[in-house]
C-alpha cells in the first residue's frame, strides 16, 4: 500500500517536471519529437535510478558515519558525472542511432537538476506517505526515484506529443518556438494540478 502511495505521489501529484520544476532544460530542448523524448526519458530514468542507488549507499555508509554530510552535493555530483559518462559509452556501443539523436543532451544529463535533485531529496527530506514522517529506507528510496523518473518520462512524452501537433498549427510570429511551448507546458501543469491533494 505504502509503495502505491509513493508511486502515485511521485508520478502525478508531485510531478518532478510540472510541479517541482526540476529538469526543465532537456524538457524544452529535446521535446520536439516523440522519439527523442522517449530516448531522453529512458536515459534519464536509468541515470536517476542507478545514481540514487549509489548516492543513497554512499550517504548512509560513508558520509553519515564520518559526519561529513556537508560534502553531499560534491560527492553526489561526482557519482552522477561518472555514471553519465558510463551510460554514454554503453549507448555509443549498443545504439549509435539513439546516441546520435540525443546528441548534446546526453552529457547534459549530468547537469540535469532532476538527477541531483532526486538524489538530494531522498537523503534530506522526511516523507509521510500517509503514516508517520520518516527518512526513506533503501527500498522506498528506489521506488521513489524510479517513479519520479517515470513521472518525468510521462510529462516529457505527453509534452512532445503536444509539440508535434503545435508544429502544424498557426502560431503568432513572436510566440513561435519556446514561448508557445512554455504556454503549453503551463496548461499541462494546470492539468496535473488536478492530482494535488490525492495523497
Amino acid at each position: 500500500m505504502e509503495y502505491i502511495i509513493i508511486i502515485i505521489s511521485a508520478v502525478f501529484v508531485n510531478n518532478i517536471l510540472l510541479s517541482q520544476f526540476l529538469g526543465i532544460c532537456p524538457f524544452l530542448g529535446v521535446s520536439n519529437k516523440v522519439n527523442t523524448a522517449v530516448g531522453m526519458s529512458g536515459a534519464v530514468c536509468f541515470v536517476i535510478g542507478v545514481s540514487t542507488f549509489f548516492t543513497y549507499l554512499l550517504n548512509k555508509y560513508l558520509l553519515v558515519p564520518l559526519g561529513i554530510e556537508f560534502m553531499q552535493t560534491v560527492a553526489f555530483i561526482v557519482v552522477i558525472a561518472a555514471l553519465v559518462q558510463m551510460v554514454e559509452i554503453i549507448l555509443k556501443k549498443i545504439s549509435p542511432s539513439l546516441y546520435q539523436a540525443l546528441g548534446i543532451y546526453l552529457p547534459l544529463i549530468t547537469t540535469n537538476c532532476a538527477v541531483l535533485g532526486v538524489a538530494l531529496i531522498v537523503v534530506t527530506k522526511e516523507f509521510s506517505f500517509g503514516g508517520e514522517p520518516h527518512m526513506m529506507n533503501l527500498a522506498e528510496s528506489m521506488v521513489y526515484a524510479v517513479s519520479t523518473a517515470l513521472g518525468y518520462g510521462l510529462a516529457m512524452i505527453l509534452f512532445a506529443g503536444m509539440r508535434e501537433q503545435l508544429e502544424l498549427s498557426d502560431v503568432p510570429e513572436s510566440f513561435k518556438g519556446i514561448p508557445i511551448a512554455l504556454v503549453t507546458a503551463g496548461i499541462l501543469a494546470t492539468a496535473f494540478m488536478g492530482f494535488s491533494g490525492l495523497v
Partner: peptide, 22 residues
C-alpha cells in the same frame, strides 16, 4: 492565484519572453 502556482510560472515566463523578443 494561478500565477503563484506552478502553471503560472510557465505562462508568465512565456509572455515575458515574447515581450523581450519584441
Amino acid at each position: 492565484l494561478i500565477f503563484v502556482l506552478a502553471p503560472g510560472a510557465f505562462i508568465a515566463l512565456a509572455y515575458i519572453m515574447v515581450l523581450f523578443n519584441k
